[in-house]
């Protein structure tokens, strides 16, 4: 009855306005409905467990001695943050992150330049560059572990300045090199593809113009190409850096953290899965999460680029 009365109002303008707002409201509702499953699922597996980790981190709680569970407040955090093992592992992880990303950036850029110029056999190059990307990290780790191995590896035989019986996994830095080689090998292709896409967006005309102006190859690279690729480089570095900070698979397979090659992720895994220290492990989980946030923040600050505009929305 009342509906009839309102629709009977002769004000056409109001009707139209109401129509659009109805439609936009409907669109709004539809949009929320469509994104709801993804959002719920993503939060279910991350936000809720993180909150639980936060809660568990306040306890001394060993899974194999459940009766001894006791509330210890922030004690676990104090223990971790005053422990040399934690800081040693943070150092290892940061070293791995900085070195691997630096190498990947340089090698990946060189690869991108080559791919950018190649006109024939693009399929072959593209296929081979995708193989390390697609290969299982554990497989890459085994391949390199065997390559560096004392009894079965070819590396000692091929490198002229390395003795036949040099044990790469017997000492910290050689073992770290082996781990980083596997990491760099596996992820450089991804980096180079991102950089290739960035390279494709640098206009040929600008480069030609610089050439005509007498700029050397080196000048063209630094003054024209790289500045125009800033967004692509930033995205590639950000993603790879955060990925490298989480390094786990290579360390698990190649050294299991021996010779002080442990990363923060591996330390967390060991506390929870090997020692069943759910309380201490949860505190490490929270700290690991905060570290990643901090690195993301620092990188974004460093590049001074609004992430959402570079990545999500145009």
């Amino acid at each position: 009855m009342s509906t009839g009365a309102t629709t009977a109002t002769p004000a056409a303008a109001e009707k139209a306005r109401k129509g659009t707002s109805d439609r936009s409201r409907a669109e709004n509702r539809l949009g929320l409905k469509l994104v709801a499953p993804a959002v719920i699922l993503m939060l279910l597996v991350t936000a809720y467990p993180m909150l639980r980790a936060l809660y568990l981190s306040l306890f001394k709680y060993r899974l194999s001695a459940p009766d001894d569970r006791e509330f210890v407040g922030l004690n676990n955090y104090v223990t971790v943050l005053t422990d040399s093992l934690w800081w040693g592992d943070v150092f290892n992880t940061v070293v791995i992150m900085v070195i691997t990303v630096a190498f990947e950036l340089v090698i990946g850029f060189a690869f991108a330049m080559v791919m950018h110029r190649v006109v024939f056999a693009r399929g072959i190059i593209r296929t081979s560059i995708l193989i390390p990307y697609g290969i299982i990290t554990v497989v890459s780790a085994f391949a390199w572990q065997f390559a560096f191995s004392l009894n079965n590896g070819f590396v000692n035989g091929w490198l002229p300045f390395i003795g036949e019986d040099f044990n790469w996994f017997g000492d910290k830095w050689p073992a770290m090199i082996a781990i980083m080689v596997s990491e760099i090998w596996k992820t450089t292709p991804f980096m180079s593809l991102l950089l290739l896409a960035g390279l494709a967006q640098v206009s040929e005309d600008t480069i030609e113009a610089a050439k005509v102006d007498g700029a050397t190859w080196w000048q063209r690279l630094w003054k024209v190409i790289l500045p125009n690729m800033k967004a692509a480089i930033m995205v590639a570095v950000l993603f790879r850096a955060l990925d490298a900070f989480r390094i786990f698979d290579n360390i698990f397979v190649m050294t299991r953290g021996a010779q002080d090659t442990e990363s923060v992720s591996f330390l967390t895994y060991r506390q929870i899965i090997e020692q069943f220290e759910l309380g201490m492990g949860s505190a490490l989980s929270v700290l690991l999460f905060l570290s990643v946030l901090l690195i993301a923040y620092l990188l974004v600050k460093l590049f001074k680029v609004d992430l959402a505009s570079a990545r999500g929305e145009r």
Partner: peptide, 26 residues
């Protein structure tokens, strides 16, 4: 067009950077 579009994309971005090992325990 709907409200919260940016939120959805931000969540997705955050998840992509999430340190998976920290979820293993919980």
């Amino acid at each position: 067009e709907f409200k919260g579009k940016r939120v959805v994309l931000s969540i997705a971005l955050a998840i992509a950077m999430f340190p998976v090992v920290s979820l293993v325990g919980p």
